[in-house]
Amino acid sequence: MVNQEDRIIIRTENVNFYYGEFQALTDVSMAFETNRVTALIGPSGCGKSTLLRLLNRMNDLIDGCRVEGRILFEGRNIYEPDVDPVEVRRRIGMVFQKPNPFPKSIFNNITYGPRLAGVSGKADLEALVERSLRQAVLWDEVKDILGQSAMMLSGGQQQRLCIARALAMKPDILLMDEPTSALDPISTAKIEELIEELKKTYTIIIVTHNMQQAARVSDFTGFFYLGKMIEFNVTEKIFTKPDMKQTEDYITGRFG
C-alpha cells in the first residue's frame, strides 16, 4: 500500500468504465490522500482524464456510458442510486483544460456557484470573492475591475479565475484536468506555484501531459496506459526508479 490508510479521502475500487462498447478503464483501484497532490500521467487516450471525471460524476453527462466498481468518497460510494451528483460536485470541484469562464463579470463568475447553493447577502459574497481570488493569487490583478467581463482577462488570468471560482464552493477536493496545457510558460509557472500553496487546504488530483510538471508539483503519481493503472507510487520513486518497464519507457520518453 502506497498511502497511509487514515489519510485517504477518496478511493476507487475495481473501477471499469465503458463508452458504449469501448472499455476506457479496466480494474482501476487507487487511493488519494488528503492535502496531497496526486498526478495522473500517461499517453493520450490512456484513461487518466476519464478517471478524473469519474471522481465527481462529470461522466454522467455522456450518453451511453457505464461504470462498474465503487468510488468511495469519505467512505461512501458516490455511484449509489440515492447519491445526488450535484451534492458530490459541490464538494469535489473541477478545473478544466481550457479556461472556461462564463460570459459574466469577474464577480458574478465567482459568486455563481455559492449563490445557487444558497449563499446570499452582499457582505458574505464580497468576502467570499476576495478570499477566493486571494487564494488563486488573482486578487491584486483584478480587485479594481471585478465588474468587468471575465472574457477580457488573459488566458492565464482566466484559468486562475476558474480556480478561484471552484474554490469559492469551498470544496474538499480539487480536480484539475491538464490545467496548464492551454497556457504560456509564465502562466503555467504561476499555476504550479498556486498548486503548491493550495495543497495546504485542499486535496488536489491533477491530470497532466507534462512529466516535468508532475515531477514538480505532485506528491504521488499514477501512470496509466491503455485504460489500466500501471504503477502508482510516491512521485520521487516513479521518476527515479520505477518498478515497471512501461513506466520507465514513458518517463524517459521512449513512447507517448
Partner: peptide, 23 residues
Amino acid sequence: VPQTFREASLALGVSKWQTILRI
C-alpha cells in the same frame, strides 16, 4: 453554447435545470 460552459457550471455543483436557466 459551448459545452465547456455547461461543464463549468455542473462541476460547481449546480443542478442541470439551474445550469440551463442561468448559463
